[in-house]
């Protein structure tokens, strides 16, 4: 009984319309958190071990980590301004995945080593492409909620 009650009470979210990190947003917080850690640790390890091998790829991974980190923070923080900046970041993330993804397909030699966004995130089960799209859908819906 209590479980269904709490579900109904929080699922609507009328009281706090700009809580971005609850409900479906909680799943997004998780995935963005995971990808922040994944991209950041990947770029840090690679930069420390051998930066000269593939500077472009490693810098791109670091940029991806920053974007993921910022979206995670915005989702947790909530509010209209965070929603807007997160929306912009999700768009930038999608553009980044698509540009880098196409780039690696057209000219693989430009990247001596893979990044999170290589081949549209193939090494990461294509989650890097799916994530910004679902993120933007959720952020758009959160406004009307």
């Amino acid at each position: 009984m209590t479980d269904t009650d709490t579900t109904q009470a929080t699922a609507g979210g009328e009281k706090r319309p700009f809580d971005l990190g609850t409900g479906p947003g909680r799943v997004l917080v998780w995935f963005y958190g995971v990808f922040t850690v994944a991209a950041a640790s990947r770029s840090i390890v690679q930069m420390i071990l051998d930066f000269g091998r593939a500077p472009l790829a490693y810098v791109l991974s670091a940029v991806a980590a920053l974007v993921y980190g910022f979206i995670t923070y915005s989702l947790v923080r909530g509010g209209e301004r965070a929603r807007r900046t997160a929306l912009v970041c999700c768009a930038a993330e999608l553009v980044g995945v698509l540009v880098v993804g196409t780039w690696t397909l057209v000219e693989p030699s430009a990247f001596a080593d893979a990044t999170v966004w290589s081949y549209c995130g193939r090494d990461y089960l294509f989650i890097p492409v799916i994530l910004p799209v679902t993120g933007m859908m959720w952020l758009r819906r959160a406004r009307t909620a």
């Binding site: 699922a11 947003g25 909680r26």
Partner: peptide
């Protein structure tokens, strides 16, 4: 994360984890 998300979405988060 699912501790403070007492809805089905908390379960989805753990499944994803």
């Amino acid at each position: 994360l699912s501790l403070s998300e007492r809805t089905r979405w908390g379960s989805v988060t753990v499944a994803a984890g």
